[in-house]
Amino acid sequence: MLDLDLNARIKAVRASYADIAAVSDLPRLDREIAELEEQAVAPNLWDDPEAAQKVTSGLSHRQARVKRLRGVESRLDDLDVLLELALEMEDEESAAEAEAELASLESLVQDLEVQTMLSGEYDERSAVVTIRSGAGGDDATDFAEMLLRMYLRWAEHRGYSTKMMDTSYAEGAGIKSATFEVDAPYAFGTLSVEAGTHRLARISPFGSADKRQTSFAGVEVIPLLEEATEVEIPETDIRVDVYRSSGPGGQSVNTTDSAVRLTHIPTGIVVSMQNEKSQIQNRAAAMRVLQTRLLLLQREEEAAKKKELAGSITASWGDQIRSYFLYGQQLVKDLRTGHESSQPDAVFDGDLDGFIAAGIRWRSLSKDD
């Protein structure tokens, strides 16, 4: 007799999915998709490239979310059929398949549940992630490259599209900095909890004394805005430098001065782009990122001023968010949520979902306090 009772778990998944579908408001998403589809086929759509990008991006993101939501419902119905077949035929192979499918759906619904907590103004947008090495010499630049690979692997596991925008290689190991785009619905809201200072403690592979080395890297996450028209930047406030794109070891990967570095003189913000084919494209991409950073800086200053006027400034836990221990104990621990993993190799290979979900829940609870 085949012992397979998954009814309670299936019922729990269905209940969670029903709540998620209600919060997501599928009828509203369907209406928005219909409106955007109508705009997308307009003959003059690309007369305004920025507006066209906004339409096509909004359409693809909503279509992807609806497909994901309705896919869960369809898979739950198929699971009922598979489970019924396994019990009727006492088929152990079908039973194992049903259990595996249920586990997959539980994980997916948990992911969707976390996504419902993302209600910020820019949360549904794609993300631009910048990683910079900090204190620690070669260990820090190597650590920055480890983090770059970690986030790219995380995106790859989830089927998200990524695009490198700029990379500055270190003279020794690793990278000084790297900027890349993650094009997926809610990429910014999801990855924004990764922003902050990351710390690595390990026996340095670059020293000869076998001593423990601590190094740091910073992660910045901003939303990808199709246009940042709220921020006007006078040409006199920008210094533009052009140079040749380069790869590891300083080898030239471009024979023209197509890379662009923009420096916003009043704030000191620097944005570099070298991965587009032309100087014009790199400058446009760099300007869009600069505008976004200035817009967010403006919002942060306004929010800080409001808190100051209200007399409600509270102490922060600081920028350091996570520690990675690769000596003695093998451990990755988030300092805000307490979430940890004893498998740092898996984390560096992109197994970040647990940390990200815990971070989103922590932030949601912090807002409610």
Rank of each mutant, 00 (worst) to 15 (best):
N7M: 11
A8N: 09
A12C: 05
A15N: 06
S16H: 05
A18D: 15
D25Y: 02
L29K: 08
A34P: 09
A34V: 06
E35L: 02
A42M: 02
D47L: 01
E50D: 08
A52F: 09
G58M: 08
L59G: 06
H61D: 13
R70V: 15
V72S: 11
R75L: 07
D80R: 10
L85D: 15
E88N: 11
M89E: 11
E99Y: 00
A103K: 10
L105N: 00
E106A: 04
D111M: 13
M117K: 14
S126M: 10
S133K: 06
G134K: 06
A140D: 02
A144P: 01
L152S: 03
A155T: 12
S161W: 00
S161R: 12
S168Q: 14
E171Y: 06
A173Y: 06
P185I: 07
Y186E: 00
T190P: 00
G196S: 05
T197S: 10
V221Q: 01
L225M: 10
A228C: 12
T229N: 09
I233S: 03
D237N: 09
I238W: 03
S245A: 15
S246N: 10
V253A: 04
T256H: 12
R261V: 08
I269W: 04
S272Q: 09
S272N: 03
N275M: 13
I280N: 04
A284L: 06
A286S: 09
E302A: 15
G311R: 08
S316I: 00
S341C: 05
F348V: 07
G350F: 12
S364W: 12
S366R: 13
